[in-house]
Amino acid sequence: MLNDHIHLSYEIVSEDFARAGEAASDVKRVLKKMNVKPDIVRKVAIALYEGEINMVIHSLGGTIDVYIMPNEIQMKLEDIGPGIEDIDKAMEEGYSTASETIRNMGFGAGMGLPNMKRYVDDLDIKSGLGQGTRITMRVIL
């Protein structure tokens, strides 16, 4: 089933809502084709979708890299800013800095990061105001 590691890479454009979710969608398709267990596919897809939406809403753009390895799936989300001021606060359910426009689209409920944490085995966030944000998520197979 899973031989060597596979690397998938996507460029995420700030405020490109029309394409937001395409990376998660593509990763989901690839994992399904590889016959990865459905619950694992769903976890990866949801976490990645939330991450991707966050990048489209909040960041100035960045990249998503997914590494599918024999024992785990690693997702690396890196953007060029503006950074998260208070990571602990951002991890609280219901806390959001998203605008009314974003809320009208069905996002900005303050569930993005908590949802990502909920579905992955390991979540690491490195960020600060005025810097980029680097998120690494791992799902163990």
Partner: peptide, 23 residues
């Protein structure tokens, strides 16, 4: 709110919503 939908996994479920966009 789509993030609320994404918070709880269910099997073979139906989503009832008043939101109407590609997301």
């Amino acid at each position: 709110m789509m993030s609320d939908v994404l918070a709880f996994v269910k099997d073979q479920s139906v989503l009832i919503t008043g939101l109407c966009n590609p997301h």
